[in-house]
Amino acid sequence: MKAKTVDKIATSVIIAIAALIVLVLAGLLGYILVRGLGHVSFHFLTSAPETIRKGGGIGPQLFNSIFLLVLTMIITIPIGLGAGIYMSEYAPSNKLTNAIRLVVEVLSSVPSIIVGLFGLLVLVNLFGFGFSLFSGALALTVFNLPLMVRITEQGLKGVPREQKEASLALGLSKWKTITSVMLPIAMPVILTGTILAAGRVFGEAAALLFTAGMSSPRLDFSDWNPLSPFSPLNPFRPAETLAVHIWKINSEGLAPDAGEIAAGASAVLVITVLLFNFAARWLGRYMYRKFTAIK
């Protein structure tokens, strides 16, 4: 009977650990939301931060995060799709392709702080983009590309071979086959992955410290000329994002309500990432149903 006792104990331990993991997440989310949501208000989401006084908001940071995300995805998606298509459809199976695969894998595991350093050296200083949204978007592109390539490759590999052959047999070019037949079928996988990647970009901070910068000019939200230095739309201005802001006020915040602001900003960040997650899940399921629908 001893083996059975051990089995029971082990099973209970495993169940307890599973419960613990759920509790950790629940505690984590609960803590952030309970502590942070109380602080979140329309004023908090729209007004500028204060350095030493109470009552600062996260308006510019929120705007910067969203703008940076859009910029990053505009650069990442076409390059990532292209590179993914190459790896999945054009790359010959030889040593060179294996080497490229290794390179992509290495790039995907380079720590984001290294990507940030690279951005500082090459984008900010060498190319002279300065601490700017544009430098930040390029750094995040570097950080995000391997994921995008993998997602695209995965999506295309999941397309049944007969679909590709059917299109080629009709006399369609390979490129047209990829863009009109294969990509639509791969779309649910690619889209779901892209949204998750976007969530990752939204929360990234380490790669941005030395590229997009840790400060924001006083933005004039009535000036929508992208060339003006105080316009929010100017991609060549420094921009502190929400995630960077959380880090900064935790390590050097002077405002008396720094803890509350950090909590509120964390809550906003986490809710956004959760929304990305749910959107990805929902969209994936919806598109799957739509594509396999039997009407």
Partner: peptide
Amino acid sequence: PVIELLAGIPSVVYGFV
């Protein structure tokens, strides 16, 4: 899903908590 959500939480939030 819980595990996937844990993976999605930004690192600065982990640091803050």
